[in-house]
Design a protein around this nucleic acid. Structure first.
Lengths: 193, 193
DNA sequence: GACGACATGTAAAGAGTTACATGATTAT
DNA sequence: ATAATCATGTAACTCTTTACATGTCGTC
């Protein structure tokens, strides 16, 4: 049976630690979301499929009368995961960025609207970097409590995200400054000093 | 009627210059594809819709008996485009990167496979930067022939792409070096589960 | 004459999001 | 009490890709 990337996200997160579908969603939203987002509408059916094919196993662990299915990756699941990771060949880098699209066509609007757009983009990337820093803090605390397995890679990937968004914010901010400079051959207006 | 981002990509490209559906695809593949990809299956139905709503207009310009529909953006279309660009609020930054996903879970494979993965990622971003440089060269030639309208923004967005992929390639290359350095001192220490 | 580029379109399948529906537990 | 969080799941919808189907034109 063919596994999708969604399957591997789930498999990978359950490899890190067992959990419910809800847990998978929480962790995904603080980690893989930044390069592969998944939703409940994908998670629950996929967990069923993975259970049927024996790549994960379920244990029912209700709290009182609130149901809870605890999923664990199996040996077959770990096998499938590492086979997938080892296949180094495929994989495009796909970006969907509506704001960059607007910037690309922003010759069609007034300069101040163009600048407002750039400001919004800069703010977005600063906010993304902040969010990742907060995630990092949370992760360090969980790790101190022994709730997360050691990894040489994952904290670095987080740092990667922070540095990337900083770089992006800086690039757009620099571009905004540059545009402003070009827009004014400066007649009698006072230049900033 | 609600317009999708695909509509705006088409509208924006026809704003740059009139063309056929085929032309739109060609230009998109060398420009907006890097932040918003579109396919024929979207373009032809969407051009029909945009024509029906009066945002673009068609002229039939066959070459011999090979049909060709030349589309032009209308005043209403330009209006819709600039209204969309001026709305500065929305817009997440979405990335789908299977290779980064693999890297994130690569604690599950042997170090040499991890390194091979990083090499492949570096190669991908170098190739992407090269491709964008080639696009830039092509664009400069078209511009010299007067086939493209002047823009302060679009060449900068291209440069942005080149610099971004260079930054990404450098980051992954640096990370690979770092991992190799760490791999040497202590071979003991392992994973809990 | 064959091949690659030009050109238009539809249909089916696949991927992903959003809304809905339901209910328990915990913290304020 | 009531709001937030935990928890599971389905259905409808939207978006996107891929495959198919058809045909012309220019060039090697």
């Amino acid at each position: 049976m063919e596994l999708s990337n969604v399957s591997y996200v789930i498999l990978g997160l359950l490899f890190l630690r067992p959990g419910s579908g809800y847990d998978v969603k929480q962790i995904a939203d603080h980690s893989t979301r930044h390069f592969w987002a998944i939703s409940f509408g994908q998670i629950y059916p996929e967990l069923k499929r993975l259970t049927e094919t024996g790549l994960v196993e379920v244990e029912e662990t209700p709290t009182g009368s609130r149901q809870r299915n605890l999923y664990r990756i199996t040996a077959a699941g770990r096998e499938a995961l590492s086979t997938w990771v080892a296949d180094t060949t495929r994989g495009p880098y796909e970006v969907r960025d509506e704001m960059l699209l607007k910037l690309f066509f922003s010759d069609s609007v007034a300069p101040e609207e163009q600048r407002a757009l750039l400001d919004a983009i800069v703010a977005r990337h600063r906010a993304a970097a902040d969010e990742l820093r907060a995630t990092g803090e949370m992760l360090r605390q969980k790790h101190a409590k022994g709730q997360l397995p050691h990894s040489p890679v994952r904290p670095e990937v987080l740092r990667f995200g922070i540095e990337l968004h900083n770089w992006l914010a800086d690039w757009y901010a620099g571009f905004r400054t540059k545009l402003e400079g070009e827009a004014r051959p400066a007649p009698e207006e006072e230049v900033e000093r």
